[in-house]
Amino acid sequence: MRSRLIVNPNLCTGCRTCELACSFTHSVAGKPGLSRIYPLDGGFKDLFVPVVCLQCEDPACARSCLVDAITRNPETGAMELDDKKCVRCQACVSACPFGCSLFDRVNNLVVKCDLCGGDPACAHFCPTKALEYKPIVPKALKSAG
């Protein structure tokens, strides 16, 4: 069964460990890269929301990519951006309604969450389990079991 990255803002303290973990995991030429995840102000006191790619069913990023550089990894379900194919037109950056395709100005790269190939570092390092990578149990099965 495929796993998903589950976000629980109730548990997020805004410590930004996820950001660090992501940045270091996706380092470019030995230097930390642009983080794909951001704990942002949820609009209420002490409420933080880690914003990260939702790996949509019908993703605008892939639809907007004219060179087919964004494809779904059949194993993880992540929409992965093939940097070798990307031509930096930034269509996906503008087209994603959640702002989860990002342009790394320092390294001239378009980046997005790839679920770290099946072991997301953010969830791994989240001290409060606000981020968890776990199998999704369909509703039908849940109610039956």
Partner: peptide, 16 residues
């Protein structure tokens, strides 16, 4: 993209 992310955070914050 930044505003999109902020918007998403606010929406999810509200639900939470």
């Amino acid at each position: 993209d930044l505003s999109h992310r902020k918007e998403l955070a606010l929406k999810m914050g509200e639900i939470t």
